[in-house]
């Protein structure tokens, strides 16, 4: 386990020594602060739109950080050949995959903490209310969502040669699932066979990432989600992440490293 954590720590250091995170954070902060300076419908107290905008930026930024970081990890190791001194140590390829994924996930978690603290500070200062548990549930479920996305990106990074093609495909798939995933069963009902069965199969196979998007919880100050439901969603995300990482390990364990 030490090996996995050691690899993860290098991944986290890499993310925070690059500029991506800072650029995205500063951009999100600037846009939010500019929106915050204005008023909505001449009512200072309406912060719903501010929350909606800020949360949308957080979702986009976190997704970009997670996908671009995870998609380049293993290709960069191979391209820069840092994989060779690493695998010359008592390290298995499974540990490399686990360490890289864990590092990306923890780094994405740290980024989420920074983004959400900013959101809480901006919105709290305006509405003088601090529904911290709502924020916690929203951030937690988003982190679980990012765990699944990172596992998909790591799998893609072994299957596709170029990180850019992996990232592009992943953005399309993730946004597709977020927008359409929950409606596929209804679409299937309206289709003739065999399309109906195909759509149903896709509906039951894909990870339903849209379940983790609980921005409304924060935006509309809805009552908290039952904690058992949060735990079940977390377990669901972990199962999918493990499945994707297992597939990544199967693809990577015998793969030639182009020496």
């Amino acid at each position: 386990m030490n090996t996995v954590f050691a690899i993860a720590s290098v991944t986290i250091k890499e993310l925070y020594r690059r500029k991506d995170f800072y650029v995205l954070f500063v951009l999100s902060a600037l846009i939010t602060l500019m929106a915050e300076a204005g008023t909505f419908f001449h009512d200072d107290k309406i912060v719903r739109y501010l929350k909606e905008l800020c949360l949308l930026l957080i979702w986009i930024s976190a997704l970009v950080i997670a996908v671009t970081t995870a998609a380049r990890q293993i290709p960069a190791e191979r391209e820069q050949r840092t994989i060779f001194p690493l695998l010359a140590k008592p390290v298995t390829r499974g540990q490399v995959i686990a360490g890289k994924s864990l590092g990306c996930w923890l780094a994405a978690g740290l980024a989420l903490v920074v983004f959400y603290l900013f959101l809480i500070a901006v919105c709290g200062s305006r509405e003088h209310a601090w529904p911290l548990l709502n924020y916690l549930q929203a951030a937690w479920l988003q982190w679980m969502f990012l765990g699944v996305v990172i596992a998909m990106a790591v799998l893609g990074s072994i299957v596709f040669a170029a990180p850019s093609s992996n990232a592009t495909i992943l953005f399309v798939v993730v946004i597709g699932i977020l927008l359409l995933g929950g409606h596929l069963n209804q679409v299937a009902l309206e289709r003739p066979e065999p399309m109906r069965s195909v759509l149903y199969a896709i509906y039951f196979i894909i990870p339903h990432l849209e379940w983790f998007d609980v921005r409304a919880l924060v935006i509309h100050d809805q009552s908290l989600i039952a904690w058992w439901a949060v735990a079940a969603a977390s377990a669901y995300a972990i199962v999918y992440a493990v499945l994707f990482l297992f597939a990544a390990w199967l693809a990577f364990r015998r793969k030639a490293l182009n020496t």
Binding site: N2, T3, K13, L86, K89, V91
Partner: peptide, 28 residues
């Protein structure tokens, strides 16, 4: 074993101290 590749392939964003600490942890 210790292995030195023909060309240097190390995480260039780390310091020498950090990279050695990383590999030391891997060796347990």
């Amino acid at each position: 074993i210790g292995y030195l590749p023909e060309l240097t392939y190390y995480y260039k964003f780390l310091t020498a101290e950090e990279i050695l600490r990383f590999y030391a942890k891997i060796f347990g």
